[in-house]
Structures are given as structure tokens and as C-alpha cells.
Design a protein around this nucleic acid. Sequence first.
DNA 1: CGCGAGCTTGATGCCGATCAATGCATGTGG
DNA 2: CCACATGCATTGATCGGCATCAAGCTCGCG
Lengths: 260, 260
Amino acid sequence: MSNQSHGVQQLVRGSIPPVVSSSRQDPFKVACASCNLRELCLPVGMSGDQLERLDAIVSNRRQVPRGAALFRTGDAFSSLYAVRLGFFKTCVAAEDGREQVSGFQMAGELLGLDGIGTDHHTCDAVALEASQVCVIPYHQLEHLARELSDLQRQFHRIMSREIVRDHGVMLLLGSMRAEERLAAFLLNLTQRLRARGFSGSSLVLRMTREEIGSYLGLKLETVSRAFSRFQDDGILSVKQRQIEVLNADALKALVNPGEC
Amino acid sequence: MSNQSHGVQQLVRGSIPPVVSSSRQDPFKVACASCNLRELCLPVGMSGDQLERLDAIVSNRRQVPRGAALFRTGDAFSSLYAVRLGFFKTCVAAEDGREQVSGFQMAGELLGLDGIGTDHHTCDAVALEASQVCVIPYHQLEHLARELSDLQRQFHRIMSREIVRDHGVMLLLGSMRAEERLAAFLLNLTQRLRARGFSGSSLVLRMTREEIGSYLGLKLETVSRAFSRFQDDGILSVKQRQIEVLNADALKALVNPGEC
DNA sequence: CGCGAGCTTGATGCCGATCAATGCATGTGG
DNA sequence: CCACATGCATTGATCGGCATCAAGCTCGCG
């Protein structure tokens, strides 16, 4: 099972080539220094010997099969996880059982930040396809961040951006209408895919309509109807989970109705 | 102008007495060690000499008049702010001008975390009453956190809890109905007031119906109607912004409809 | 006193939820 | 290879909660 054959492989590869370590090549031992996600992940801004020290604590990889949980609400918190391959969703639950998807995570993104505050995870992280994560023991990360200011800075940036991202979702949930929400969601997805070297105009959704709806505060039927309408309007081509963006400008105009 | 006469002073004082420094007393120079918020704020878990070092970088206070902005979207980020006295709201804006309240902050809570990720603030922080904040220069905080692991730990916890709080708001916005949202909001407020030594059954809202509605993804008329209905049902007494909680259990039952 | 900001209350309409049926793709066992 | 089951998606019909529009009302304040 090659670790290059999974993930968003059905998408067109773009400009950033995967960098593969020459000597240490091993699906369970890939150094941050030779990881093609190093410009998106925790090591941003770190140099050679710093990377080696980070590598020393991020030695463990973990496979997560499709549908399996990386962690669940209430689990003791011990590590953060960097998505190396695959795709995750995180779900929060109210006491009465209502569940909601709080985010989707792709390669290079960090999972588990919710656990730092209480030493227990406050959401479920579930793989939407066969995935692989790098395990980052939190106490070792804290210790190392006290010595490497670049690591500290990048870690704080990641947490801050997570907060800003959540504010954006709150804005979406609080004030946008169904089609605007879906348009914003698709633009966000394509932008993140583009940052990973994919074209962004052609994508395969890893989640169901119901999961999209849960994330966007809509019912699955509403999501489906919005997709159909986008297709009727020539903005998208929709074949189940295979999406082609035909008119990205129209999507952007939907999100910012005031600007056109 | 005494710094004890502002804030949530119309609320009944509870168990935690304000601790006032004997020697350093001065509204613009109150040491963390002698601040009555030290158990809620950044110094949690820090001991004597650590507190002194934190004090050294948190030397500056800033007054913010009612209606004034502590910072605005786009401002360069340089410091975090701990609310010492008063009450704030934070607002995020979409490109098309739509604004939404993303949070309310009271004494002991931190403002400005949004700015770390991009070196610029991504929301407005506006005082809802005459307020005072402690200015925490961020680069000095980073530096000190590398030496004081207790400070580092508490700072990370605060950021993580902010993320978890945002997830809770997303759940509220995505899946609760109007009255549940307002009930959850009121319970959250009373809980935070109780943590600050107030009774929690009697409170004065510092924000308008419109601001509450913006935060909860509702129109002000809907908020007003929900208040009226709670009053009709004997759950609250509502006189403009003066709220008495008559039946806290009924409020809790509204938030968790499955449990009763 | 009278103005104005903020709050309440009513009437109406619309967007998205809900209920229900059908369609489509994948997989499994006979 | 077909029949059937299953999970997911689409589409239609109806309903309800909240937004919207529109008056009044309250209270603080110049």
C-alpha cells in the first residue's frame, strides 16, 4: 500500500511537486524536512537543525481507516495530529445528542487543538477516507517551543488562525442564506486545494450532502437543491460528488452580493 | 473616578472579595499579584516571582470609553489586552459589509488573539461601557512564555478554550431555534458572572437587543419576542436590560430539550 | 418638555425544514 | 449475470419559524 496512492489523488496535480526524502524513505518515517507539506504545516519558517529537533518528537505516524475516529469527545488529550494524507471531519455534540460538523481538515492541517484547554478532547475527529497522521506529543511540543521561537511563533499562528476561521464560520451561519453558504464553502475548499497544488476547478467531495449541511447549518435536501440550482445556472457541473467549477466569479459574487 | 464604581456594579456581589494591593494601589498600576481577576486571567497557576516577571511586561493600562474601539479590523497587531474593568463586544465583518458580533468579553478575559495569525486584527473590539484593559505586548509575552512554562501552558489553554467556545457558538447557530439560543446565551452570561462573584440570578445586559441578535444570528424583534415569551412563562423578569432569572432550570431545559 | 434611541408588538411573507417518493450507484449473493 | 439490498442524492409538496415591514411605546437626557 503506497502512501502516494491515497488522498485527493483524483484531483489534477498542480505546481508543487511532492518532495520525497532520498534516504529515509518509509511510509511510517518521513522527516518533516522532506515532507511536501512542510510549507503548510507546523514546520513553516523553521530551518535545518530546528527541523531535525522537531522530527525527533514527531517520530510516530498513525493510520486511520475510513470511518474510524482519530479521537472522540472525552478522550484524554495527549497529542496533536498533523494530517499527512487523507481527509477528516470534526464533530461537536450538544448534551442532548445533536451533532454538528465543526470543520473539515485536509493534508497539512492540525487536529486536536480543542483538547489543550481541558486536557480532554471536546470533539470527534473522524477520517472520511483512509488517512494518515503525524502524532505530535503535546508536552514535548510545548517543551521544544520554549527553545525554538520559530516553532512557538508558528504554533501560535496556527491557533490564532483557527480562531479566525471559526469567526468566519460564525458569520456564515449567522447571516448568510443557503446558496451563499454553499458558495462560500466551495470557494474555501478550492482555495485550500489550490494551496496544495491542485487545480481547484475540479474536485471530488469527500463528505456526504448531510455532512456538508451539518457544517453549514442546513438540511441535506437544501444542500442538494443548492447544488442543482448552481448546475442549472451554469456555475457548477455536479455529478454526485464530482464537482467542476465552471464559473468561479459567479460563486464569488454569490458570497459578496453587495459587490456586484 | 474610582475604578471600583464601573463595570457590572449593579449586580449583587457574591463570594469572591476584591483583593486590593496595600502598597501599589493606583488605578493605572495594579500588579497582577494583587488583581482580583488573577484566578481568571493569564496569571492562573503562576507563583510569586513568576507573577512579578509577568507584571514587568504588563505595566501599561488603557482606558476605553463607552462606544470606543480598542482596536479595529486591519489595525496592526502588537498586543493582547486583558479586560480589567468593563465590557466589550467583538465584531467580524464580511467583505460586503455585513457585520456580526462574534463575542462579548468581560473582566479577566483576553482580547486580540485573532491578530496573532496575520499580524493584523481581524475584528473590531468595542467597549460597551467605560472600560479599562491591561496591555500585554505580544512579543514580550512570547519571550516570557519561553522561560515560564506555567505562563506558556495557561496561554495555550486560553487559546484552546477560545476555539472550543467558538465551536459551541457554531453549534448554537447551526442547530438551535431562537428561544434555545437566547436561553443558552443567558445561561452562559450568568455562569461567567457567577465565576466573578456575582449572584447570576440578577443581571444587567450591557448590550442592545440588536447586538444580542447579531451574536445569536437573529433579528432584534425575534430576541425581543423571546424575552417576552420567557417573561410570560415565568422564566424571567425583563425590564428593559434588567433581567431576573426566576427559573434557571427551565432555561436549562430549553437548551437541552432532549433531557426533560 | 420633547426628542431620539432602543424596545415591544402585530401582520404578513418567504426561506428553508419537513415529509415523502423516486432515482442512481455500488455491492452482494443466488 | 441478474435480482435485490443499501446508502446516498434528487426532486416535489407542504408547513412553520423567523424575517420583514410597520406602528406604537418607554425611558433617559439635553
